[in-house]
Write a protein that binds this DNA or RNA. Structure first.
Lengths: 212, 212, 212, 212
DNA sequence: TATGAATGAGCTTTCATTCAT
DNA sequence: GATGAATGAAAGCTCATTCAT
């Protein structure tokens, strides 16, 4: 009976998850060969359906890519939002927390890592995706970092210096680590924990005033 | 007379330069749409020749891409080598010089900038190119930075700290700037000079001992 | 009613027969111009489909040729096998029967005739097809002819002579007729029945002992 | 000096032979892959010249094929003519001589053998070549064989029988041997001498009257 | 004579997309 | 919902042919 029930529920539940399964299959294929070289037929095969099924759920290939990026970015968006929410009003300690957080994102979420690569590669073809990513992930973080730096300078907890007006620098090590991992991992082994430690060391020490 | 001579040499010189012209046309097209989506016919049109001509000079599309990256990377390779040669034995001033140099590369050489993007995007399909790039550009720089940091620590001119063992950090701002310029330039205007100034400030201040 | 039923079944049946239809169209085109000069587009047009459809059912042009030869040879294989089965243990009368049979094959089955030409023409490119043809058609016949000749010699119904050890000679007139028909038919009209009669006359008379 | 002279004579002599060299190179390539699949570039490379040179000596690819068949057939034409001339008025011994001659042609002249294959393969595309071949090689032989058989029957040295009116049969073994050698040589080793002996045995015995 | 560069038509093959079932 | 057959536009690549030198 339980089995029967499972079966009965099983099929519709699976059906409801079809689109998601297709998007995950699409992710793997797009990561493997990039947008243009990916064949919808391979996506279908990986998802265990046929090409026609994809067109039942999505309008076309572009739409699959768009939906895929949105679907696979969602957790990252949510975690980022949650991180920002949970770390309001914590002063310059936010800088250290953010470095921890951003490194964890890159290191522990393959989706996040590879989607950045896809966005870099296909930025020209999918400007709207880039916009979305910027709007939902980067911009809020930038704003908060900028605010944190400004507050720190005002409180004299951070040096009044060019670096304090450039929140980009706080993203740089993570971005670079990502590129290193994606592109040069085979030639140049990287120890991400040491990388993070060094980045925190450099950035925090570099921002704090001498007497701090 | 000079004009006549130029004219006379003109045609053969053009013929000899055809492959290079094609590679430059290929660069523009590959940058525009990526490897897979680029049509060799468009490359030909841009170079002012026909498809057949491309296949007279190159074996196939992959070969065009490979040769293109090599050709367009050559100046960058040479400048990098020259920079390393001219800045031997200059102590920790090398760090500052390198930041200046690397930022100049990214900002002033569109080829260097876009080829990095192409390498990131097509790393899976062209692992050999990534190897070459690493070997000729990144690896020598890494080695020198590492040495410089180690020397600086020994001389007590640089703090003995995790950051001093991670030359990656010295590349990070330039890499990140590159990504920002390539991907987010439209949404987030960047002032590269301020960026450089801030990076130098942060890195140098962060590495030097307090009493130095 | 029967017509209606036929009509209703018509469409799916046609779909199931598509590959076969394509192979028959391919036969005509390959016969007309040979393998290399045949355009798959013409094959498609003749079959009433588009180029893409061919690639849905077959891997590539070579595969179309291979399958075509197999498909169109099948009847010949079967008739040959059937002939061998039905003519066991019939002594040297088998020789005469076989001449009748082989001439009928060549004369009445245009497929058999032209496929021989294609195999001759494309033997270098399709060695496997030649192997198959040899294995399924020629070899069994050879074996039986050889056995028949040997038995005949032992029974003194056939002369003990070099010709009795060379079954090739029993195939020769048919092969030659085929070549004449394929190549020289326009210049040299041939009466196949007279040809067969003469061949039987020559071969049988040449093999039988004088007092037989 | 001698060297100089050799050089001086050498070049023009070679130049005069260029077209012939090209035709021999063409033969090898056409034999290898057939007319349509042969690239003039490969012909040129084999002849040690460039594509352009071929077009200096020949109008186009078809012309190369035509000239090649003519050039490479010439010796066969001449030997055939010579054979016919030298064997006039020799009665039915001519039959035996002709079998010897035709087998020798096939076995000892690879050109003759392969050109037959090319004619079979490309008969549709080059009807004029087939005509020429028929006119210069086959027809004269046919006529003579027919005459010889008729004379033999009149003289009662040959049976008055259907086989005596079908000179095709006298060509059959040689034609079949050719096909066997060209197509099935790898699968079915053939002893040409035994084949010839058997053919002569069968044909002559089959044609001669019993009391002869 | 001979060459090498260039052409352009044409071919095989791919694949996003459609649609009857 | 899902499928498989079919399409057709387009892309990579080939190669006979031309021609300035």
């Amino acid at each position: 009976m339980t089995i029967d029930e499972d079966c009965k529920r099983g099929t519709p539940r699976r059906k409801a998850e079809r689109p998601t399964e297709i998007l995950h299959a699409a992710f793997e294929e797009f990561v493997l060969t990039g947008y243009a070289a990916t064949r919808l037929e391979d996506v279908a095969a990986r998802a265990g359906v046929t090409k026609g099924t994809i067109y039942f759920h999505f309008q076309n290939k572009e739409n699959v890519f768009n939906q895929m990026v949105r679907e696979l970015s969602k957790p990252m968006h949510q975690r980022t939002q949650q991180f920002l929410d949970e770390n309001q009003h914590c002063g310059i300690e936010f800088l250290s927390s953010y470095l921890d957080f951003s490194y964890a994102e890159v290191l522990e979420d393959r989706h996040a890592r590879e989607i950045l690569r896809l966005l870099i590669a296909e930025a020209t073809r999918f400007p709207d995706l880039v916009d979305e990513h910027f709007q939902y992930v980067l911009h809020p973080v930038f704003m908060r970092l900028q605010q944190t730096l400004a507050d720190g300078v005002r409180d004299c907890r951070i040096r009044n210096t060019p670096a304090a007006t450039c929140p980009d620098l706080l993203l740089s090590p993570m971005l670079a680590l990502n590129v290193f991992l994606l592109v040069f991992a085979d030639r140049k082994p990287i120890d991400p924990k040491k990388h993070l430690e060094a980045a925190k060391d450099l950035i925090l020490y570099g921002l704090l005033p001498r007497k701090a």
